[in-house]
Design a binder for these strands. Structure first.
Lengths: 138, 138
DNA sequence: TGCTTGACTTAGACGTTGTCCATTGTAGGG
DNA sequence: CCCTACAATGGACAACGTCTAAGTCAAGCA
């Protein structure tokens, strides 16, 4: 994932310890973390890092398209580092667990022109909802 | 839409002025309002209504399935009174305008078993994103 | 290497959205 | 008409996010 750091440097980003740490956290595992979770993990590596910096950095990563914002949750936004392979989400309504999924077909094609109201449609986000195996047991 | 009021009464709801007003606001037009917008409109009809009551009432309407919660927006939840005809949403990324749309096909069928991870999938929510004609002009 | 500069970071106040709780009010049955 | 359980009130609280003023530092350059 020095990939990501490389790409950022290529964009003229100033490389700071804080930004490096945020990038590392996002790369760490495949969970979709909330901003505060990212902050919590960043703090373990760099105790002085502030919340505002994490929010700023995440926001910048989103605007340049390196990270996706998903709002499956009714509370906080979550950040999805897997921005380069398009995918959708499957959410457990009980515990909030999220998995990445890849439906077949092209949902963009499923929206007829008569249903576009003159919009230029560029993207679609699908959120499947259900109950995960764990919660189904309980 | 005394329809809605009828159905609520049928469910054993105690009918109060506040609940009636909230139902009227939801029925008023087809926009997807935020909770605070609902409150703002309710206040014009019943000045003493409190924010907590609006939130409670909306929450109850959602749990009994008369109203849908949509979170296309990164900020507040919006409430969609059109709960009885399933539909999806088309959102303008610039101005936040929302339209109801009806894609063809059954997106639930587009998720292969191998992509379900043991979940019991019951629902899918699709959010198309793009730019509305108005914002495209500007 | 050491300076300079503007971008970056910080801490904490602030804003918005939403929830909770103790108190007060009231719908609807008897 | 009165009771009583359920609903409404309002104000404190909590979670999430944004903003600002001041300090700090990465990176280019002499």
């Amino acid at each position: 994932m020095s990939d990501l750091l490389e790409r950022l440097r290529g964009r003229g980003w100033r490389m700071t310890a804080q930004r490096r740490v945020v990038a590392e956290v996002l790369d760490g595992d495949h969970v979709h973390l909330t901003a505060d979770e990212v902050h919590a993990r960043a703090v373990t590596k760099l105790p002085e890092i502030s919340r505002a910096t994490v929010y700023n950095t995440l926001g910048e990563l989103v605007t340049i398209g390196e990270v996706l914002e998903v709002s499956t949750d009714k509370r906080a936004k979550r950040y999805d580092p897997n921005a380069h392979q398009p995918h959708h989400h499957l959410v457990c309504g009980q515990c909030g667990a999220i998995r990445d999924v890849h439906p077949v077909g092209n949902p963009l094609a499923d929206l007829p022109d008569t249903e576009r109201f003159g919009f230029t449609v560029s993207d679609v986000e699908m959120t499947y909802r259900g109950v995960c195996p764990n919660c189904a047991k309980a």
